[in-house]
């Protein structure tokens, strides 16, 4: 299982702030997670397909890119570019 968190407009559009799912077969990198989410229907496809470039990711609370690894038990977060301060 991995935990997926959504923040800001991703949460609004997907209608949820988190979900748990079994690590799909063959999914080893962040890019694989994004592709598997983009294969879902509706908002998921729109958010993770077309708009992928505007999304940032963290794995276990560290910024991560498409080539970073994802393992069973990881917390994977997706969010827009940050705007603190």
């Amino acid at each position: 299982m991995i935990t997926i968190l959504y923040f800001a407009w991703l949460r609004d559009r997907l209608g949820r702030s988190s979900e748990s799912m079994p690590l799909p077969e063959g999914v080893r990198f962040v890019g694989d997670v994004i592709r598997s989410l983009a294969e879902r229907d509706g908002e998921y496809r729109a958010v993770f397909g077309l708009q992928g470039g505007a999304i940032r990711c963290a794995v276990n609370q560290e910024f991560a890119g498409p080539d970073d690894g994802v393992r069973d038990g990881d917390e994977v977060a997706f969010f827009p570019p940050v705007t603190g301060g």
């Binding site: 800001a8 603190g84 301060g85």
Partner: peptide, 23 residues
């Protein structure tokens, strides 16, 4: 802080409209 701390801002206007702030 502006570029590495995970905060997001939603703007709320006088006319009731809201919008997420772009980085």
């Amino acid at each position: 802080l502006k570029t590495r701390a995970p905060f997001w801002k939603r703007e709320e206007f006088e006319d009731g409209r809201t919008a997420w702030v772009d980085a």
